[in-house]
Design a protein around this nucleic acid. Structure first.
Lengths: 240, 240
DNA sequence: AAATGCACTTTGGTCATACCATTCGAAATT
DNA sequence: AATTTCGAATGGTATGACCAAAGTGCATTT
């Protein structure tokens, strides 16, 4: 690392970056709250003394990172966002893929995180959190029919996310969500067999019961086995 | 969730989004490799049959997400990126902050992840990985002087990231990196006392030795204590 | 021959203007 | 009062122009 360099390269800032940063800081420091509406592009252009295009480029970068949402028409404009976990999860996977992510790494980190996360879930979950998991599992049973097989994958993912949410730990939820995002991409159009569906359902149910009864060891063991097993199913088993 | 809807709202796509997605897909599917140069904005405008401005907006979103890097001047243009973990880590924290992240949640997820990660580190680390950690710790000792206190924070963070890298698990490294990013932000301009520095140094050394000798339990226990202790130090201890 | 300096070309950065499409709300109509 | 209509606000796109930076190569100087 070169933090000891005497000279650092001059940062050639672009105007729209500066504007984007000003707005970003205002949002992060809560000077602008969620749902607040920014002035229109034309007004911002006047205020910042730049062209409208420059404002647009700043808003584009902010929008793409979830800081604002842009709406058209009268009463439209840029509105301060509240974060977009889905977008971040997607971006996480995109970037990891650029770095050379493999399916094995996903499975390994899922085991590491989700097993460890069970401890947080058991510690922090309220009745409502567990209820939501139970409901989701119940809803999954309704779907265990050949003609609704297309919906099963989303439900499988939902279980893991709901368990993560039971931890009430935002970073952890986001991480799990991004790991699940990978599975969703790899298995697009994948229709699990009846056996695979039955296994997944039963496995989720067992894990849930262990968590409910606060049997940490058992829940972790079940989760590990479940992730390993699912990791070898479907298109996922083919390494990237 | 409403995946059962009969009709979905017509997706009002913006042209630049479509273009950005086409390029994004090309990059993710490796049709465009890292370092490849895209045609100039003017050429792209011709190819896509749109105005140059539209191309620019597409490139802006791609650039802000790390898919491309843009250089000026002759021989410049948009070049395919290789991912930007630093940017992603920063974005992760930004978004979590928008969702209402607290310092306690960071400490909790750090304990959960970094302790569990020790297992991966012990399992996957090669000699070179351990050497890098040892070097970093050694370099930290050189800095344990009042006049170089400003550099100490970066070194403290480096230790945790190097241990994470020893796991050879890309998602995990990124997650740890983002959690450390939070600490860096909260403690900007924080100068630890001599005692705090000494504690941190000794603590890192102990953890490293436990990992080297593959003493999983001890390493995890030390890491947990270390994270808790550090969590109560500096500006970090003030909740957000 | 090597180093310097200068002009030229390419390419992104910014501005200004114009026009379109959408959206919302107020006015007009029934 | 409900509905329809229309207009103003606002983002989306296109054109054209000019500036600034960065590389290239040639000419000049040493």
């Amino acid at each position: 690392m070169n933090e000891n360099q005497l000279f650092k390269p001059v940062e050639q800032k672009r105007v729209f970056e500066d504007i984007a940063n000003q707005i970003r800081e205002a949002i992060l420091s809560k000077k602008l709250k969620a749902q607040d509406r920014l002035p229109s592009e034309r007004e911002l252009a006047e205020q910042f003394k730049v062209g409208r295009l420059t404002i647009r480029e700043a808003l584009r970068t902010l929008e793409s990172k979830g800081f604002v949402k842009v709406k058209k028409g009268s009463g439209g404009g840029a509105f301060v966002g509240e974060g977009d976990p889905g977008m971040v999860a997607s971006l996480i996977i995109d970037n990891l893929q650029l770095e050379g992510l493999t399916g094995d790494q996903i499975t390994e980190s899922r085991i590491t995180l989700e097993c460890a996360g069970i401890r947080m879930a058991i510690k922090n979950a309220g009745m409502d959190d567990l209820d939501r998991v139970a409901e989701s599992i119940e809803a999954t049973r309704e779907i265990l029919k050949p003609e609704r097989a297309g919906e099963i994958l989303a439900k499988m993912v939902e279980f893991h996310i709901l368990v993560a949410k039971a931890s009430h730990n935002l970073p952890y939820v986001l991480f799990v969500r991004s790991l699940m995002e990978w599975g969703l991409r790899m298995r697009k159009n994948w229709i699990p067999t009846a056996e695979e569906q039955a296994y997944s359902y039963q496995s989720h149910l067992d894990i849930f019961r262990s968590i409910s009864s606060k049997d940490e060891k058992k829940a972790m063991a079940l989760m590990e086995e479940h992730i390993i097993c699912m990791g070898s199913l479907g298109p996922n088993s083919i390494k990237m």
